[in-house]
Simulated scan of single mutants.
Amino acid sequence: MKTLVICSGGLDSVSLAHIVAGQGRLSRLVSFDYGQRHRKELDFAAAAARRLDVPHHLMDLRPIGAALAGSALTDDIAVPDGHYAEDTMRITVVPNRNAIMLAIGFGIAAAQGDEAVATAVHGGDHFIYPDCRPAFTQAFAAMQRAALDGHADVRLHVPFVHRTKACIVREGALHGTPFAETWSCYKGGDIHCGRCGTCVERREAFHLADVADPTAYADPGYWLAAVASRKGR
């Protein structure tokens, strides 16, 4: 089943790309520039496409991103520190982001003859992002069946939607994912900050997966306090 992977350049989506490639199903990667402050991850998505020897479609959604105001990922709003599951991380929500990206991905897949669109949404995303939850992915898959009825049969592949980020790290490691060649940090500095929610979640995932973390963090010990604070609630 030829599969298009939505790839941001982050740990989850690059791991998914390597897993799908290892299964002999990867057809292409699709990434989106929506004016995100951490857009350096797009370079890692492009590198993944070169490494896996598949086409890379970079879609320019900057005008759309500019209209989706109010998120710390698109506006000049400080990215909060702390655990990913804190209420403060809601400021990183970009309304309908996954719905928009998946709709484009399905259009490309139908046009290019692909049979599936894969995205790396996972259980850790459910608390913050409504368009990463099982109810959304199930509804979206049903909508796309109707949208492409009689034209193309493209399935939605969400292998991690009921799994944790630690599961992604373990499976990604089994498929040779070069984790150092992925970018997660929402602050977009020279190295991962180690303090924002996605850095904390990344570091915790490697710990729980018992896989060595090759990432350089500006504050490599902060995650321990963030996790302890969350557990103490």
Rank of each mutant, 00 (worst) to 15 (best):
R170K: 15
A103E: 05
Q144M: 15
G172W: 07
N98E: 03
V121S: 07
V117R: 09
V158Y: 02
D131M: 00
T119H: 13
R155H: 13
F106G: 05
A110K: 09
L148Q: 05
H151A: 15
V154T: 07
H122Y: 11
I100M: 10
R170E: 14
D153V: 13
V121G: 00
C167D: 13
G124E: 04
C132M: 03
N96G: 09
D153S: 14
Q138F: 03
G123I: 04
H157W: 13
G150T: 03
K165H: 05
C132N: 02
C132T: 01
A109H: 13
A166V: 03
D131Y: 02
L148F: 12
A111Q: 15
D125M: 01
A141D: 10
G123N: 12
E171I: 10
L156K: 07
I100F: 06
G113F: 08
Y129E: 02
D125Y: 02
A109S: 15
D153A: 15
T137W: 00
Q138N: 10
A111T: 15
T164R: 11
I100G: 06
V121P: 01
V158R: 01
D153M: 08
Y129T: 02
V154N: 06
L148P: 06
N96I: 00
H126V: 03
K165P: 05
D149M: 14
A103V: 04
R170Q: 14
I168R: 08
F140V: 02
A116N: 14
H126T: 04
R133Q: 04
R145Q: 15
T164M: 09
D125T: 02
E115N: 13
V161R: 05
D125K: 00
H122N: 15
A166C: 06
D149I: 10
H162W: 06
R155V: 09
T119W: 05
A152N: 08
A116T: 12
R163V: 09
H162Q: 12
R145C: 12
G113C: 11
R145Y: 08
K165V: 02
G123P: 08
A173F: 07
V117M: 12
M101K: 00
I104W: 11
C167Q: 13
C132W: 01
T119D: 11
T164W: 07
F127S: 08
V154W: 04
R133Y: 02
V154G: 09
A116G: 12
A146P: 00
H157A: 10
H126F: 06
V169L: 06
A141L: 03
T137E: 00
H151M: 15
R145A: 12
A141P: 05
G172A: 09
A120R: 08
A147W: 03
A135Y: 03
Q112S: 14
A118Y: 01
H157D: 14
H162G: 11
L102G: 05
A142D: 08
C132V: 00
I168S: 06
E171M: 12
A142V: 05
F106W: 07
R145D: 14
A152F: 08
F106S: 04
L156V: 12
L102A: 08
M143K: 04
V121I: 14
P134I: 01
L156F: 13
I168N: 06
R163W: 10
